[in-house]
Design a protein around this nucleic acid. Structure first.
Lengths: 222, 222
DNA sequence: ACATTTCTGTTGTAATTACAACATTAAGGA
DNA sequence: TCCTTAATGTTGTAATTACAACAGAAATGT
């Protein structure tokens, strides 16, 4: 557990909390670290979520399976993100998503019940924690709206250009790497992979973009 | 101002706060009520948002204009919802959406800076407020994910059935009213209005649904 | 009641997409 | 290195959609 302290204390979840306090709080919240492997389900659709899952290392896809069996990738989460945070606040709500591990991942798991209630121990910093949670979930909210923007475009071309433009802005550079392989990007943008590949080639041949594997260059401003 | 107290105190924003405290808090947060009319922009894309907008009465569309000039309706908000709440937590972030008034609306406006900082007055309930904000935005995130589910369906038919099924579940009844006219529903689901109308007729003639204006009956389980 | 405007439904056509099937390239293991 | 497998790119076709243009219904104002 101790070997993860440096990662944990750098998380926005514990922003504004000293090392000594952190140690106490982790005990108080029943915190422990769990390892996940590729394909492991961290959260399953239908479960009641009462814990906070903080990604210390690795990648997690937030997915959903449609009634007709297609996969939707809703979000891609990395280190310092929380998984299913919105679900813990609304008690007794069933998870409407799956959280699937991509590669290896380390997750810090905390008991939210204990986080949200004040306790007699030195944990007078619950207030800071809740405030941090609010900031984290706000950021997630903005990203969800951005995702809605991406997939709300009319054509495959517009979806790609909007997505790449948003990624470019996030990286503050017109050269950047995307976190998806082609199939996952297609599932994220809700389009057919092969049609997407075709459109990417076309955009490249027309000089709008360039790419090699996951490394992209956006040559125009959208 | 006083005449709105009953509406304000029933809002989830002030859940767990007594009447006497409420009055003090409203003063402390510089709270005031503003009236908006149909089409008024409450929040504009590009603005820096530093206030909390609580809908006391009326409807608000959260919209976005695409680079190519199409309108996307991201969310429909009602009384007791907050507008652009995620934006205030991330300071100095430009609003990525427009909030447009639909019909008449009453909005309570609070100074978030004052909400997020403790003060010397009787406002020891800032903690409760932040905790409420966390719950509110959590609910909003779950709804955004639901919206993503709706628009991620492959065909117009699947989008409609998923949307109607989700609405039906929300109303806990297979008979319900939807808050959109046809054009707005089309902009919400990112499909063409006329194509949507056509598909609705088809679903009706095939016996899957029934409707008259905004009143829908879902006859199958999706 | 009438005229006007807005909203909704219908239809044909051109454009776009999904899908399947296959080609090519990259990656990983023996 | 070669072999195997996975990822990506390419192409043709059938299905789906957007769009425009219009018809009918409902709402609104006078």
């Amino acid at each position: 557990m101790e070997k993860y302290y440096s990662k944990i204390k750098n998380s926005p979840l514990f922003c504004g909390i000293t090392d000594a306090e952190l140690e106490k709080m982790l005990k108080c919240f029943g915190g422990y670290v769990k390892k996940y492997e590729d394909g492991d389900m961290i959260i399953r659709q239908g479960e009641i979520i009462s814990k906070i899952y903080l990604i210390l290392d690795g990648e997690v896809n937030v997915e959903k399976e449609t009634y007709w069996g297609r996969r939707i990738i809703i979000q891609k989460l990395y280190a310092n993100n929380n998984i299913g945070l919105a679900l813990v606040a609304s008690k007794n709500i069933e998870a409407n998503i799956n959280a699937v591990c991509v590669g290896h991942a380390l997750i810090l798991i905390l008991n939210y019940e204990k986080c949200s209630r004040m306790c007699q121990n030195a944990c007078m910093h619950h207030g800071v924690l809740i405030s941090n949670l609010f900031k984290i979930i706000s950021k997630e909210n903005i990203e969800l709206i951005e995702k809605i923007e991406n997939i709300s475009q009319k054509t495959i071309r517009d979806k790609l250009l909007t997505y790449l433009s948003n990624e470019s802005q996030k990286h503050k550079s017109n050269i950047f790497e995307i976190p998806f392989n082609r199939q996952d990007l297609a599932d994220y943008l809700n389009i057919d992979r092969s049609a997407m590949s075709f459109e990417l080639s076309k955009l490249k041949s027309e000089g709008y973009i360039n790419y090699k594997k996951n490394k992209f260059v956006l040559k125009i401003e959208v």
